[in-house]
Simulated scan of single mutants.
Amino acid sequence: MLRILGRPSSLNVRKVLWTCDELNLAYDREDWGVGFRPVDTAEFLALNPNGQIPVLIDGDVTLWESNTIIRYLANRHGPQLYPSEPVARAHVDQWLDWQATDLNAAWVYAFLALARRAPGYDDSGRIEASVTAWNRVMAILAGQLTKTGGYVSGPQFRLSDIAIGLAVHRWVATPLAHADLPQVRAYYDRLMQRPAFRTYARSDWP
């Protein structure tokens, strides 16, 4: 059985859990990370030298980096989420990469300041700049959803929607001045029709 190491309040862990649920994969999850078992021990660093969650253990295979893990799971079990045709797959990959780079870079400061209330994240200028950047990338997403009419990489639900859908939940759940983006709100409502998304898009897990 799959082992998933990481606390479920982590967005990156939830990507893996949601993917497993969409694919009906059985797994055992173990609590690691803040508030649970530490990730700076020799035991954990032997699995992921970066000391970060999640980690997936599948028999002899050990993987880290959440987008790599969900690609692996979909490659093995879910062609409906990760098509093999090169162009369709590239469209999924580009939005997975966008989530890990442009989107994540935009929200970090604002999220830690406004949702997590993390110490040291109280610079009003940096909060405002991060909120502006976050709304800007959400506007890019809105433009893409206008083109596809459904999901991020096309008309069908794909792996890219798991990574970006949880990021949209974070945007919705964080108390900030949200840009008026009806396409993103409608996309969020569509995702809420999926039972697995409702499991991981909790108000206490932004």
Rank of each mutant, 00 (worst) to 15 (best):
L2V: 08
L5Y: 03
L11K: 01
N12L: 06
V13L: 01
L17D: 00
L17P: 01
L17M: 03
D21W: 11
E22S: 03
L25C: 00
D28M: 02
R29M: 01
D31Y: 05
G33K: 00
V34E: 06
R37G: 05
T41A: 12
A42H: 10
A42P: 03
L45K: 07
Q52E: 15
V55M: 03
D58V: 02
T62K: 06
L63Y: 08
N67Y: 11
Y72Q: 11
A74K: 12
R76V: 08
G78C: 02
G78Y: 04
G78W: 07
Y82E: 00
Y82A: 02
E85K: 00
E85H: 07
P86F: 05
A88Y: 09
H91W: 08
Q99V: 10
A100Y: 10
T101R: 10
L103W: 13
V108R: 06
Y109A: 06
F111Q: 00
L114G: 09
L114V: 05
A115P: 04
R116M: 07
R116T: 12
R117C: 14
A118Q: 14
A118W: 14
G120D: 07
Y121H: 15
I127V: 15
E128R: 11
E128M: 02
W134L: 11
R136L: 03
M138G: 13
A139D: 07
I140L: 11
L141S: 10
Q144K: 02
L145C: 15
L145P: 12
S153N: 05
G154L: 06
Q156K: 05
S160W: 01
D161N: 11
A163E: 09
V168N: 14
H169A: 13
T174C: 03
H178T: 13
A179T: 12
P182A: 14
P182W: 07
A186R: 12
Y187S: 09
Y188V: 15
M192K: 11
M192H: 09
Q193E: 06
Q193S: 10
R194T: 03
R194L: 13
F197Q: 08
Y200D: 04
Y200S: 04
A201W: 11
S203Y: 12
W205M: 10
W205A: 00
P206V: 06
